[in-house]
Design a protein around this nucleic acid. Structure first.
Lengths: 215, 215
DNA sequence: CGCCGAATTGAAATGCCTCAATTTCCGTGG
DNA sequence: CCACGGAAATTGAGGCATTTCAATTCGGCG
């Protein structure tokens, strides 16, 4: 994208600070804006009619999110909750068509972004269909490490508060099972747990689990 | 899309007949073309490293498929297999950027299509995370009825050959479980089975199951 | 220091899968 | 046209991964 384009885009934007625990938008609300996360971390969740929750994805700095309008929706399909203090840039959704018009390239980029998301979703479906829970959790943790991992002495720290419940909602299991698995891993020296904390000590060991290599 | 645009598009297209059981393209192959299904029925599958297969989606007449290039991929992420004799229109992927250039509107449309697919994928993830097998199968069958249902006397016929194995691969279970479930449904008068056949006798009953209303 | 949400851990229940044995159905070729 | 062969489907039995239920314990924030 050219600087001129960027400037034109920024001209219409506002920015918004969201404290941890607060929602940027809620499932079912009218899609008035779309966003770019500058700083912080969000989780996008969906609640089923019977009250069960799943985590659709985690939003990292630099990610676009909430572009429901681009997908032909008038409301947000999920809730975007800040898990740590976050800052996002906001554009009114009405401007989307103009942006596309003036900068067709943007449409291509956006499409590729959504395409990647689709592939991620398919990966998740594949994993849930064919793999047992421990492998799925291993994959999820490795993915988080890649997206939000921060070197920290002995290992890699997941750089935002994440609970067992969160991991359960990302992998389609229960917090109990996740807790048991992480405890077992801790015993084996693969990870180090903690309250809403996770430190990976042995990436290779985890990768082996994810790839289903038995000891 | 205007007639002129349509004509310009059609000018570069070829059409291709695919007998039942044959693949339009295979997982991992270079993405040379993208397609529009005119007639017939395809299933798009993915195989995991350890040989397990899942059905990503069923392609119905009128659906675009195989637009890997638009998603920034050079190879097809899955295999598209004709389950009944099919006819597809093909375009070389190289032409995609030109089409977008000349007709930015196309990009928007394509994006919405992919967006819908993403939502479908999320729905599936939500179901697999929170629902037991019987409900998932009920949902899958209802979806098929909506997409490929054909009134037939007493009920609605799924209008292409579909096996218990197929349904299992769509819902993340085994053919055995699917078979048991369908047998139970047949006893209750909800459906009528058969070799690669499925007739729905009681949509409301199935919907109730899908919504988890116990008797 | 006290409280509340997060995490752990045990025990029991169960839904689903795996293994295995038939049976049914349909296309094919004699 | 019928018999055969193989793929699809059915069905039982047993096992086990995971959930569910329940009871503590832990840890950080106010």
């Amino acid at each position: 994208m050219s600087d001129a384009d960027l400037e034109r885009l920024m001209g219409h934007s506002t920015s918004r600070r969201v404290p941890a625990g607060e929602a940027v938008f809620e499932q079912g609300a009218a899609a008035t804006h779309f966003f770019l996360l500058l700083h912080g971390r969000l989780k996008v969740t969906q609640v089923t009619e019977d009250g069960q929750q799943i985590i659709v994805r985690v939003v990292h700095p630099g990610d676009l999110f909430g572009f429901a309008k681009a997908l032909q929706r008038s409301d947000y399909p999920g809730t975007a909750l800040a898990v740590s203090e976050s800052i996002a840039i906001c554009w009114p959704t009405e401007l989307w068509p103009q942006f596309i018009d003036k900068n067709p390239h943007l449409a291509v980029t956006a499409m590729q972004t959504i395409g990647q998301r689709l592939e991620e979703a398919h990966t998740r479906i594949r994993e849930m269909s064919t793999q047992e829970v421990e492998r799925r959790v291993a994959h999820a943790v490795l993915r988080l490490a890649g997206q939000a991992g921060k070197q920290e002495g002995a290992g890699i720290r997941i750089d935002f508060p994440i609970s067992r419940q969160d991991i359960a909602e990302m992998t389609g299991t229960t917090l109990h099972t996740v807790s048991r698995i992480l405890s077992a891993w801790e015993t084996k020296g693969l990870v180090e747990g903690g309250r809403q904390k996770l430190l990976i000590r042995d990436m290779d060991g985890l990768s082996a689990l994810a790839a289903h290599i038995k000891d």
